Amino acid sequence: MRAAILVEGVSDQAALRALARRRARDLDADGIEVVAMDGATNAARYLHDYGPQGRALKLAGLFDEAEERFFRLGLERAGLTPGPKTEDLEEFGFFVCRTDLEDELIRAVGAEQVLALVAAEGEQRSFRTLQRQPAMRDKTLVHQLRRMMGGRSGGKERWARLLAETVPLDRVPYPLDAVLARV
């Protein structure tokens, strides 16, 4: 292995692998591992293990906006010092998903297209039930879709893969394209 893309979880991993396939990239053949860390709080350990103090692999990563502090701290502990702005982490190959991966993909695919995908997957009735719940009634469609995707075990992984397989290649969210281009 020559490089590692560190991601928070299996949904990020599934999306990046699906997108790489669509871009005709064989990550395994290229010696690139997409490592699901079981949460951003584990970033420091993985950055240590895979980075300059560990296996010394070329690193890249993807993180949700709210989890930046864990990646920043991990980079610092690994001996890398990013500047104070979120974009400064890109110098080290780490890219932020504004709100989160699902939000990036829903916006790129388009909420109406995602609704069509929900129907095609046989989940329309379940989604309509979720929309009628008191806590969801006043939420945006994007918020409701994000909630549906994370509502069941394995749901985030499933929907991340499906959305990555659906998004037009000229509309792939910047952080996903950028992290793959980095390695």
Rank of each mutant, 00 (worst) to 15 (best):
Q124I: 08
E121A: 11
A164K: 12
R22E: 02
A160K: 07
L47N: 07
L6H: 09
E8M: 05
L16P: 11
E87D: 13
A20Y: 02
A15D: 03
R2Q: 09
Q53P: 03
E76P: 00
V114P: 03
H48Y: 14
I5A: 02
V114Y: 10
D64W: 03
L75R: 08
M148Q: 14
R22G: 00
D28Y: 07
D38P: 01
Y46K: 14
L47T: 04
K85Q: 15
S11A: 15
P134W: 03
Y50E: 13
V35E: 15
D64C: 01
A3N: 07
L105A: 01
V183D: 06
E165P: 06
R77K: 14
G31M: 04
A120H: 09
D177H: 05
E68L: 00
R98D: 12
V183S: 11
Q124P: 04
L6N: 05
L19V: 04
R2E: 12
G31Q: 13
F127R: 14
F70E: 14
A20C: 04
A40K: 11
A119S: 10
F71W: 14
R98M: 04
T81A: 10
A119C: 03
E67F: 03
G79Q: 09
L75M: 02
D38Q: 15
E121D: 09
G31N: 09
A66L: 06
Y174D: 10
L6S: 02
G39A: 08
E165R: 03
L105K: 01
F70M: 08
D88Q: 13
K139I: 05
G110S: 10
R158V: 01
E121S: 13
N42Q: 13
A60N: 04
D64S: 03
A160D: 10
A44T: 13
H48R: 15
A178P: 00
R22P: 00
E91P: 00
L6V: 01
L169R: 03
R146M: 07
E8H: 05
Y50F: 10
R161S: 05
R55D: 15
Q124H: 10
D100P: 09
E91R: 14
R107Q: 14
T140Q: 06
Y174C: 01
A14Y: 09
L57G: 00
I106C: 02
L73G: 11
R147Y: 11
V7L: 08
G54D: 04
D138T: 14
D170C: 04
V114R: 10
T129C: 09
R146E: 13
R182G: 05
D38Y: 15
Q131N: 12
Y174S: 06
K156Q: 10
Y46I: 12
Q124T: 08
A164L: 07
R161K: 13
T86A: 12
